[in-house]
């Protein structure tokens, strides 16, 4: 494969699995998603919060509410994982780096799973 690469592709495509700019792009795409989702969810919550448990469950369990929340959780934890990864790579090396990167990945994944299951539970219980 590599010998068919142009010199430009060779320098721009360096990095894991030939996707040197992949994390950079995902960080910005999730940033754009969060830019829309965060204000949307904040405003919706502010209105639902005051009316208590039932109102919040109705909002989270609604089609619009559950979709925006699921999208928010997904964009948020993906964005968080990449951001923390860059910070870890800046300050740690060797075994510590490897272990912390694993903790970061698994931690974000588990938190995302709990969030998604909680939202789906409210959605299906109605």
């Amino acid at each position: 494969m590599a010998r068919y690469q142009t010199p430009r592709a060779k320098i721009t495509g360096l990095g894991a699995a030939g996707h040197g700019a992949h994390h950079y792009l995902v960080q910005r795409v999730t940033a754009l998603a969060l830019l829309v989702l965060v204000p949307l969810v904040l405003l919706s919550f502010l209105a639902a919060f005051s009316s208590g448990y039932e109102a919040v469950r109705i909002w989270v369990g609604s089609l619009f509410g559950s979709i925006t929340l699921l999208a928010l959780m997904s964009a948020m934890f993906w964005h968080l994982r990449l951001g923390v990864q860059v910070a870890l790579e800046d300050y740690f090396g060797g075994t510590a780096r490897m272990l912390l990167l694993l903790v970061n990945t698994f931690g974000c994944f588990v938190l995302w799973l709990i969030a998604v299951l909680s939202i789906l539970r409210v959605f299906f219980e109605g």
Binding site: L80, A115, I119
Partner: peptide
């Protein structure tokens, strides 16, 4: 960013409590 990462824990616990 790190503060918000810690705060994401709070969001998840809140969602779990709601469920």
């Amino acid at each position: 960013g790190m503060v918000l990462g810690a705060g994401s824990l709070l969001i998840v616990v809140w969602l779990a409590a709601l469920a």
